[in-house]
């Protein structure tokens, strides 16, 4: 296979294989740190520093007539708070910040790819952690809202299978889409290196990076947030109260009939 592609394009894809899976940077027995985890630490540090800077600059000079930065912050926070408010009424104080935090982490964790590091989300562990957070939220909030009436939900085996499929599907959706974006970009870099003589290396990555990195980052963070809200809404949804039937004794019926007559 490599012979054919070598002959056609002078492109060598054999370097792609060791870019797909994370490398172990530190390995001491069970204690393993790969490069995704390192970039995850960098992302968290960057987010904390940005939050501190925003707290000290924009939020300290909070104005009643907002300008630029304040307007953006208000829009961002209001967007998540409003959608949490619509979906999970009394738990919006919990779900709004959680979805905003998770979306920020996913978005920044993917965007770090543009600095040449491995994206923090392109590791199965990060995706499992986020999906398990959502899983725990779904079930604790379901119990907190519905108490004992939540229990019949677990008696149905189909419901249990559906519940267990939620974190798995969320994990693989996130992991697969980020990994595929990363692999496609790596493939394009290798391809462009092979056909440098047309001048494509200047244009092609610049055109395709927004498509495969920026687009994925925003779409996946938005999808993760809205899926979390949808599942929580489904879990805390109260069954509609049964319409009370007016008791009709025979006497009353007769009396009513007599009245109408």
């Amino acid at each position: 296979m490599s012979n054919l592609s070598n002959g056609l394009l002078a492109v060598d894809f054999s370097g792609l294989a060791d870019k797909i899976f994370p490398h172990h940077v530190i390995e001491k027995g069970w204690f393993v740190i790969n490069d995704s985890v390192l970039s995850g630490f960098i992302v968290v540090a960057v987010i904390l520093i940005i939050a501190l800077i925003l707290r000290l600059t924009i939020i300290r000079h909070w104005k009643t007539t907002p300008t630029g930065g304040q307007m953006f912050l208000e829009w961002l926070v209001c967007f998540f708070d409003k959608s949490a408010d619509e979906m999970t009424e009394e738990y919006s104080g919990l779900m709004g910040p959680y979805t905003l935090g998770a979306a920020t982490y996913i978005c920044c964790g993917v965007l770090i790819e543009m600095f040449g590091l491995r994206p923090a989300i392109a590791d199965l562990g990060a995706c499992v952690a986020l999906a398990l957070c959502t899983f725990i939220f779904i079930h604790t909030l379901g119990f907190a809202k519905k108490k004992v009436r939540r229990l019949p939900h677990y008696l149905n085996p189909i419901n249990i299978v559906t519940d267990l499929a939620v974190p798995v599907s969320m994990t693989f959706r996130l992991f697969g889409s980020i990994l595929s974006g990363m692999v496609i970009m790596d493939m394009i870099y290798i391809l462009v290196e092979g056909i440098w003589y047309i001048g494509l290396p200047l244009i092609l990555p610049a055109v395709l990076t927004p498509l495969f990195t920026l687009f994925h980052a925003f779409i996946q963070s938005y999808v993760f947030a809205s899926l979390t809200l949808t599942f929580v809404q489904e879990a805390i949804e109260m069954p509609p109260p049964k319409p009370k039937r007016p008791k009709r004794s025979k006497k009353g019926q007769l009396a009513a009939e007599q009245k109408t007559v």
């Binding site: 599907s169 693989f172 959706r173 992991f175 697969g176 889409s177 595929s180």
Partner: peptide, 9 residues
């Protein structure tokens, strides 16, 4: 999209 991503993985 999830199914397509599964296939890709």
């Amino acid at each position: 999209e999830t199914t397509a991503i599964y296939g890709l993985l």
